[in-house]
């Protein structure tokens, strides 16, 4: 707890800063504090990220000092840092090269074929660290070491909607078509509304299944 700092972020917001690392257990504490503060009347809005929680309040009603006290009180009980209890969202993904626009590039850099890439990417549960960049864009981690590759040198002007992409230790599903520099490893059948602090499991589907599902959802 002694590593947590409270810093002014705006005239109506305080930043709660946890330990300065990208780490599931630290991020789980961020979300645990968010859950704890959600029902507190002094708090207007909460924005979690990897290791920070932005807390908005109303300066008409409360001072920064009062908000600090509210947060410190919420921090008195230890925060749950385990992700075991988190709800799991399942996302079906087609890893076929016809929709995995960078499968060739990823294959060349990792030495793995399509089946191996699919098995590796869908072989473990991910954690939703935070949402941002675009509405509904969830940053998931951590990727297996073998899939940790840098972004494209030149971002794509248009990444197709529902593309499943990887970059460094993270993976994500583009909710809408947008520019983007992550490597595209597959295409999701559909994207449920993800929330930070959830777990995500990818399930590989064949191209035939994908086409059937997309045509008749």
């Amino acid at each position: 707890m002694n590593q947590i700092k409270l810093v002014t972020a705006a005239l109506d917001a305080l930043m709660v800063e946890f330990e300065n690392r990208i780490d599931r257990s630290i991020n789980a504490q961020v979300h645990a504090l968010k859950t704890r503060l959600q029902s507190v009347p002094e708090v207007l809005e909460l924005v979690p990220s990897y290791r920070c929680l932005l807390v908005y309040y109303n300066p008409l009603k409360h001072s920064e000092q009062q908000l600090k006290q509210v947060i410190l009180t919420a921090l008195e009980q230890p925060l749950e840092s385990s992700d075991e209890a988190a709800e799991i969202a399942t996302i079906e993904v087609c890893y076929d090269p016809s929709v995995a626009l960078d499968s060739e590039l990823i294959g060349a850099q990792t030495g793995l074929n399509t089946e191996q890439l699919a098995a590796l990417h869908s072989g473990l549960d991910y954690w939703v660290y935070t949402l941002g960049f675009a509405p509904g864009f969830a940053y998931l981690g951590d990727l297996p070491q073998a899939l940790q590759l840098p972004r494209l040198a030149t971002p794509r002007a248009k990444v197709p909607a529902l593309s499943v992409a990887i970059a460094n230790q993270q993976t994500a599903v583009y909710p809408h078509s947008s520019p983007g520099g992550w490597l595209i490893i597959g295409r999701a059948v559909a994207l449920p509304q993800l929330r930070a602090g959830q777990r995500v499991r990818f399930v590989a589907v064949s191209l035939a299944d994908y086409q059937a599902r997309v045509e008749r959802p």
């Binding site: 705006a10 990897y50 920070c52």
Partner: peptide, 10 residues
């Protein structure tokens, strides 16, 4: 920095 929330006016 690790990306963090951003307030209007910052």
């Amino acid at each position: 920095l690790i990306s963090e929330p951003l307030a209007v006016g910052s």
